[in-house]
């Protein structure tokens, strides 16, 4: 996959930049050009907004059958997390024993390596979650 594909998502993947609708005030992540609730009324009113990085686990799974790029990590925990701002995101939960992960667990964002392009390829980074301190 081409390097720009990762590079152009850096603001959101490194700094949790989402968007806030100037019409209804709802936050979305990643940033959207049009608010799914307000449609045309939101056009030109979508502002960039950084998330606080805290949330709770809505659901989770332990992945045993992993894609090639994640083979070294398996088994790993994947979760859908509801952020304080109300929106939801999907990523891995790290620094947790497999038996300890629970629905409702408070988590916070951690900056981690996500993967790399082949053996000598560019490393790409982004957010994962860990139990809140």
């Amino acid at each position: 996959m081409a390097i720009p594909r990762f590079w152009r998502e850096i603001p959101s993947r490194y700094n949790l930049v989402g968007s806030k609708c100037g019409n209804c005030g709802t936050l979305d992540f990643p940033p959207r050009l049009v608010c799914p609730r307000c449609g045309r009324r939101s056009m030109g009113k979508m502002e960039r907004r950084k998330l606080a990085g805290r949330g709770t686990v809505v659901s989770y799974t332990i992945i045993h059958d992993a894609p090639k790029d994640f083979d070294m990590m398996k088994p790993y925990v994947l979760a859908i997390v509801e952020m304080e701002e109300g929106l939801r995101m999907t990523s891995q939960v790290i620094d947790v024993e497999l038996g300890d992960i629970k629905i409702g667990m408070p988590v916070e964002v951690a900056f981690r390596k996500l993967g790399e392009e082949g053996e000598a390829g560019v490393i790409h980074y982004g957010y994962k979650f860990r139990p809140a301190r």
Binding site: D65, A66, L78
Partner: peptide, 12 residues
């Protein structure tokens, strides 16, 4: 890109 698989999403 975060490690979600097709089965993993249905598992959640």
């Amino acid at each position: 890109v975060f490690g979600a698989t097709f089965a993993g999403l249905f598992a959640m």
